[in-house]
């Protein structure tokens, strides 16, 4: 039963993560944190951090990570198959359409309206990770005592460095992990 649930969840993630890259993040959060409670928001954030620092698509990384925790190696394999299967079906379909009509204008028309939506969804997922970093699992609060100022400082420095020098994101995450980790351990 749990294997079927895993398969179906990751099938939906594969099916609706349109636009590549980070587009899968809001869908993973939706399925894994909001709908099924397989991971806490902290574990989900750890997963995204790990996925951003290891090779391979985020959705496949997430499928393995969640699958193995919920149902061991079979879970990892089933979840991975689930997230790859929609690609296999739709890519074949689109390839057929493309080579028959030599155009993808309808698909591209749909995508033109999806792109702004996907950015917004990534922003929403990113904001919940930001809220976690600054306020912890308790969530947003107006009480200044609940604010983690080290996180605020790290975030500000990281975004400044990313915008100004455009380094590879891995270095920024490693840097904030090492510097932040050292500060947390010292205080």
């Amino acid at each position: 039963m749990i294997l079927i649930k895993l398969f179906w969840s990751f099938f939906q993630i594969g099916m609706f993560s349109i636009g590549g890259g980070m587009a899968a993040i809001p869908l993973i959060q939706n399925q894994v944190v909001n709908l099924h409670n397989w991971l806490t928001l902290t574990e989900f954030t750890d997963l995204i951090t790990i996925a951003e620092m290891t090779p391979g698509p985020i959705a496949v990384n997430a499928a393995t990570f969640v699958g193995i925790r919920i149902a061991g190696i079979p879970g990892a394999i089933i979840a991975t198959v689930g997230c790859v299967l929609p690609s296999c079906i739709i890519v074949s379909l689109l390839a057929w359409v493309y080579f028959k009509f030599n155009e993808l204008t309808v698909v591209q028309g749909v995508l033109s309206c999806l792109r702004p939506a996907i950015v917004a969804l990534i922003a929403s997922a990113g904001l919940s990770i930001f809220t976690l970093a600054v306020w912890g699992e308790g969530g947003f609060s107006t009480n200044p005592q609940t604010i983690n100022f080290i996180s605020v400082l790290l975030f500000t420095a990281a975004i400044f460095i990313l915008r100004k020098w455009k380094p590879h994101p891995i270095y920024v995450m490693l840097g904030s992990g090492i510097i932040g980790g050292a500060i947390y351990l010292l205080i």
């Binding site: 995204i48 951090t49 080290i150 975004i159 995450m173 490693l174 992990g177 932040g180 980790g181 947390y184």
Partner: peptide, 11 residues
Amino acid sequence: KGMQAGVAAVI
């Protein structure tokens, strides 16, 4: 915990 701020910035 330190990386949370970093990954939020990357996103």
